[in-house]
Simulated scan of single mutants.
Amino acid sequence: MFGSLSQDLHLPMERHPLTGETVMSGDIEYRFGGKGANQAVAAARAGVGAMFIGKVGDDPQGHEYVRRLGLFGVDTSQMEIVPGMPTGTAIIYNDKGGENMIVVAPGANHRMGMHDIERLDLLTPEDVLLMPLELPHDVVMAAVHRGSERGARVVLNLAPFAPLPAEVLAACDPVVVNESEARLLAEAGVTPDSLLTTLGAAGSRWGELQVPATPITPVDTTGAGDAFCGTLAAALSQGEDRETAMRRASEAAAACVLHHGAQPPLPDETPA
């Protein structure tokens, strides 16, 4: 995993505010997130050796995050603590229906640079490299090329959306998007050779193959897409075919929305 992490500040509320409106929230809740770390945790929970390449700030949140990822079984040997920088932070607004709005301050995540691409020389043709787009885009594009050069299978989660060049997307198998990201991709006039679209309650579609979702009543949809991507990458690295990988990913996404927060609690934590 080559990606981002953040401390998540959750604000529960009856409904999301309109533009210019003030609404009252419940008590703020501090959790752990960031698409890269969420996906690494999901992959580790799916039973593969997940290594996370990323950066945290030299603050209590950063040190705790490194410890926590290790407890999930994620290899943190390629993580870096950046002096003088805060750990990335996301503010998440959750309404009573389980839907969310998210604002991200990247902090140390945006200290990932071209020099970090060298860490990907650890990859082999047996590996899967999974990345979201919460890092500087030039770094992500360079990572796609390096992963391909090393013979690894590159899985790109095109979120938050950005119209990357067609040759970058062509090197990924698959490019994972949700429905809104798929529309933006179509508007940009780019169709990846391998496109997997998550469809919420309707499941997911990869080329001509569509797999239904696990029926569930969500508690909190934060991190569902990350659970899907991390488990998908894990299944592909284990040699599963597309349909099996999608079904496993769908089951992981369904389990994710049954607890608050993007990551499940550890045994020594109070369940959210």
Results as ranks from 00 to 15, higher is better:
residue 79 M to T: 14
residue 79 M to G: 07
residue 79 M to F: 09
residue 81 I to K: 00
residue 82 V to G: 00
residue 82 V to M: 10
residue 84 G to K: 05
residue 84 G to H: 03
residue 84 G to S: 03
residue 88 G to D: 07
residue 88 G to S: 09
residue 89 T to Q: 14
residue 90 A to L: 07
residue 91 I to S: 11
residue 92 I to T: 04
residue 92 I to R: 02
residue 95 D to N: 15
residue 96 K to T: 14
residue 96 K to A: 15
residue 98 G to V: 06
residue 100 N to W: 11
residue 100 N to K: 04
residue 100 N to Y: 11
residue 101 M to F: 10
residue 102 I to F: 03
residue 102 I to E: 05
residue 103 V to T: 11
residue 103 V to S: 10
residue 104 V to D: 01
residue 105 A to T: 09
residue 106 P to F: 07
residue 106 P to M: 06
residue 110 H to S: 01
residue 110 H to Q: 05
residue 110 H to Y: 08
residue 111 R to M: 13
residue 111 R to C: 11
residue 111 R to E: 13
residue 113 G to H: 02
residue 113 G to W: 00
residue 114 M to T: 11
residue 115 H to V: 05
residue 119 R to T: 09
residue 120 L to C: 02
residue 120 L to M: 04
residue 121 D to C: 09
residue 124 T to A: 09
residue 125 P to R: 09
residue 125 P to W: 03
residue 126 E to F: 00
residue 126 E to A: 13
residue 126 E to K: 11
residue 126 E to R: 12
residue 127 D to R: 06
residue 127 D to K: 06
residue 127 D to I: 02
residue 128 V to Q: 02
residue 128 V to T: 10
residue 129 L to F: 10
residue 130 L to D: 06
residue 132 P to N: 01
residue 133 L to F: 05
residue 134 E to L: 01
residue 134 E to M: 01
residue 135 L to M: 12
residue 137 H to W: 07
residue 137 H to V: 05
residue 138 D to W: 00
residue 139 V to Q: 00
residue 140 V to H: 02
residue 140 V to T: 13
residue 140 V to N: 07
residue 140 V to K: 03
residue 142 A to G: 09
residue 144 V to M: 01
residue 144 V to N: 01
residue 144 V to C: 01
residue 144 V to K: 01
residue 145 H to E: 15
residue 146 R to H: 09
residue 147 G to P: 02
residue 148 S to N: 12
residue 148 S to C: 08
residue 149 E to Y: 05
residue 149 E to T: 04
residue 149 E to V: 03
residue 151 G to Y: 08
residue 153 R to M: 12
residue 156 L to N: 08
residue 157 N to I: 08
residue 157 N to C: 10
residue 158 L to W: 13
residue 159 A to C: 04
residue 159 A to Y: 00
residue 162 A to F: 10
residue 163 P to V: 11
residue 163 P to E: 13
residue 163 P to W: 12
residue 164 L to F: 15
residue 164 L to I: 14
residue 167 E to T: 08
residue 168 V to T: 15
residue 170 A to K: 13
residue 170 A to V: 04
residue 170 A to T: 06
residue 170 A to I: 04
residue 172 C to E: 05
residue 173 D to T: 14
residue 173 D to C: 10
residue 175 V to Y: 10
residue 175 V to L: 11
residue 175 V to P: 04
residue 176 V to D: 10
residue 178 N to L: 07
residue 178 N to Y: 06
residue 178 N to E: 12
residue 179 E to C: 02
residue 179 E to G: 02
residue 180 S to D: 11
residue 181 E to G: 04
residue 181 E to P: 00
residue 182 A to K: 06
residue 182 A to N: 11
residue 182 A to T: 01
residue 184 L to S: 12
residue 184 L to Y: 06
residue 185 L to F: 06
residue 185 L to D: 05
residue 186 A to W: 02
residue 187 E to R: 13
residue 187 E to Y: 04
residue 188 A to F: 01
residue 189 G to A: 05
residue 190 V to Y: 03
residue 192 P to N: 13
residue 193 D to L: 15
residue 194 S to F: 14
residue 194 S to L: 06
residue 195 L to I: 07
residue 196 L to I: 09
residue 196 L to Q: 11
residue 197 T to P: 04
residue 197 T to V: 15
residue 198 T to I: 05
residue 198 T to P: 06
residue 198 T to H: 08
residue 200 G to I: 08
residue 201 A to S: 15
residue 201 A to W: 04
residue 201 A to T: 13
residue 203 G to S: 09
residue 204 S to Y: 11
residue 206 W to C: 08
residue 206 W to L: 14
residue 207 G to M: 10
residue 210 Q to P: 01
residue 210 Q to F: 02
residue 210 Q to M: 13
residue 211 V to K: 09
residue 213 A to F: 10
